[in-house]
């Protein structure tokens, strides 16, 4: 049916933290350009799943293939794979000792050996895209949470990744700043970026998601298109979850 090869294939992944099983036989595939939204109660393993995709968490067993490369295979250079996979964190994690512009240019200059001028030009274009050009010379500590997160998205984009991972990107933000960050993410989605988003923003999930993945206790409970997921959830646990949050 589907002629396109998935860009991410997760097969039978288990992840243990000591005796605690954070991921329990998880399988999921993501097509190029697809937007996958991962929902679930806290502690359900959704962030852990996201973090296994660029190996910030090593999996205990199973297989994850990103852009044709098995990431747990030591023959593949995980650092090169990570260049293809941008990540945005709940706590922004901008480099505190670098200006906004330097945050964007550091990796392209050091890793891709991009000339400084060119890296800066591209960085400014990305900052323009997230509406942060006038803060190029500021340090992260001088920015609001929403501004930091927009810069963090631009920093990830500066490596021209094929995939973007978002780990609860708006959870640490004051309510009035959530909109500006979601706006940037919606724009990115419209441009066709492959996105895997862990979030509690149901509006975003419904508007942007191609499919919604619901997790509970380390397992994927339900995978469905947003309309079906929100209007006709199949699973009992999904229904309970939706009742609690909506």
């Amino acid at each position: 049916m589907n002629a396109v090869n998935p860009i991410i294939t997760i097969r039978n992944v288990n992840k243990f933290f000591g005796n605690f099983q954070a991921l329990d036989d998880v399988s999921l595939s993501v097509d190029p350009g697809e937007k996958v939204v991962v929902l679930g109660p806290s502690g359900s393993g959704k962030s852990t799943l996201l973090r296994t995709i660029n190996q910030l968490e090593k999996i205990s067993s199973g297989s994850i293939v990103v852009d044709g490369q098995e990431i747990s295979d030591p023959k593949n250079d995980i650092n090169r794979i990570r260049e293809e996979v941008g990540m945005v964190f709940q706590s922004f994690n901008l480099f505190r000792h670098k200006t906004v512009l330097e945050n964007l240019t550091l990796a392209p200059i050091k890793l891709k050996k991009e000339p400084e001028k060119e890296a800066e030009k591209r960085a400014m274009a990305l900052l323009d895209k997230v509406g942060m050009v006038d803060k190029a010379g500021s340090y992260p500590v001088q920015l609001s949470g929403g501004q930091q997160q927009r810069v963090a998205i631009a920093r990830a984009l500066a490596m021209t990744p094929k995939i973007m991972l978002f780990d609860e990107p708006t959870s640490a933000l004051d309510p009035e700043m959530i909109g500006e960050v979601l706006e940037v993410m919606v724009t990115l989605a419209r441009e066709g970026m492959t996105m895997v988003v862990v979030t509690h923003e149901m509006g975003f999930a419904r508007e942007v998601g191609d499919k919604v993945v619901f997790m509970d206790e380390g397992k994927i409970v339900e995978i469905a298109p947003p309309d079906q997921f929100f209007d006709h959830p199949e699973n009992e646990r999904t229904r309970t979850f939706l009742e609690q949050i909506l």
């Binding site: 660029n54 910030l56 990570r82 941008g86 890793l111 990830a156």
Partner: peptide, 13 residues
């Protein structure tokens, strides 16, 4: 903060 390390690793460093 560990987040600094994670951000750096996620970029490919």
């Amino acid at each position: 903060d560990d987040g600094q390390t994670e951000a750096s690793l996620s970029l490919g460093f």
